[in-house]
């Protein structure tokens, strides 16, 4: 097996977004992820990438100027939530969100300049619930959506395939691209009748020119490894074989793990490896191995270290030991 050059985006400043007490989306998540990767002896093998502040013009490819301004004002005025009590914030939140976007864009540059083959972006705050003009589900800027637009506009990559295996549906990402046939959005998540945010039903397939370029696989509570294997083989692989993405972006969420109490889906640690190995192979088939994984959810501090370690090992094309 040839080793891959893998980037790891991580920055202490991503810990500064403070959600206060009793909130699951905590800085300790990133510390657990880093710890797992370090304890696995992987740090020396990785190209470390630090945060960078995003140019607002790239954020504006997805979000309205009004929304960006409002987010900045709400944040600096000292308010502690925005748009919903779910979205707890501190005065650092706006800057941290810009650093998350900027870090992802910097990672894209490294991939496109062939400095690295693929990367894992351990960023906070997450992004896939964020809508054009609304913060939602702990998300403010839609990191992966901005990444897709940046790839298209800065690097002239025509077709982007987004795979979202966070246990919650990425409503923001879906809505941003639902009319756009140049971005395929695939999501597998807990069925919306049983989980936040209540979208991502099977019949949501995109609209107008983008009809057929959105695909959702709802998973029932209690389903797990074998079901995911079946659905990914049935839905994701044929869809991407047909779409033939030039670049693959992944919304990585570890919250479908059976020990994560944010969902009723029962995936094992091994199943997450299988999913990522499958995506790795899809990148080999379609995008010359180019692949960028961006962190969304995953709240089990006990399981995050092993999940992140395996995730990065797969990107490095190393064998994962069960």
């Amino acid at each position: 097996m040839t080793m891959k050059k893998t980037g790891f985006l991580f920055d202490q400043r991503y810990l500064l977004h403070d959600t206060g007490p009793y909130h699951p989306e905590v800085p300790e998540r990133l510390q657990a992820i880093y710890q797992g990767i370090e304890d696995g002896g992987l740090i020396p093998k990785l190209r470390m990438i630090g945060a960078a502040r995003a140019d607002l013009k790239w954020v504006e490819t997805v979000h309205s100027v009004d929304y960006i301004r409002r987010f900045e004002e709400v944040c600096f005025s000292g308010q502690r939530t925005m748009d919903s009590p779910d979205n707890r914030m501190c005065t650092e939140t706006f800057e941290t969100a810009l650093l998350a976007v900027g870090g992802v864009l910097k990672t894209i540059d490294l991939v496109m300049q062939n400095e690295i083959d693929n990367a894992f972006c351990a960023v906070r705050p997450p992004g896939h619930h964020a809508e054009v003009s609304e913060a939602m589900g702990f998300c403010y800027f839609n990191n992966i959506a901005i990444a897709a637009r940046y790839l298209q506009q800065q690097w002239n990559i025509p077709k982007i395939g987004i795979i979202d295996f966070d246990v919650h549906h990425g409503n923001g990402t879906q809505h941003i691209f639902e009319k756009d046939p140049s971005v395929f959005y695939y999501s597998i998540h807990q069925h919306p009748s049983f989980a936040y945010p209540g979208t991502g039903r099977e019949f949501e397939k995109g609209s107008v020119d983008g009809y057929g370029f959105t695909k959702n696989t709802p998973v029932l509570p209690g389903q797990g490894d074998e079901d995911y294997r079946h659905y990914v083989n049935r839905d994701l692989i044929p869809a991407f074989d047909h779409f033939k993405p030039d670049m693959i972006l992944v919304s990585t969420g570890f919250d479908g793990h059976r020990d994560d109490d944010m969902s009723d889906v029962k995936l094992s640690t091994r199943a997450f490896s299988w999913i990522m190995e499958t995506i790795f192979q899809m990148a080999e088939d379609h995008s010359k191995g180019k692949l960028i994984s961006i962190l969304e959810g995953g709240y089990s501090l006990k399981r995050l270290p092993e999940l992140a370690r395996n995730h990065v090992q797969i990107l490095l094309n190393e064998q994962v030991h069960p």
């Binding site: 699951p24 779910d86 702990f138 919650h168 936040y196 945010p197 109490d261 944010m262 709240y299």
Partner: peptide, 9 residues
């Protein structure tokens, strides 16, 4: 109207 349900459960 929340994603943050584990605590209340």
């Amino acid at each position: 109207l929340t994603q943050n349900i584990s605590r209340v459960k």
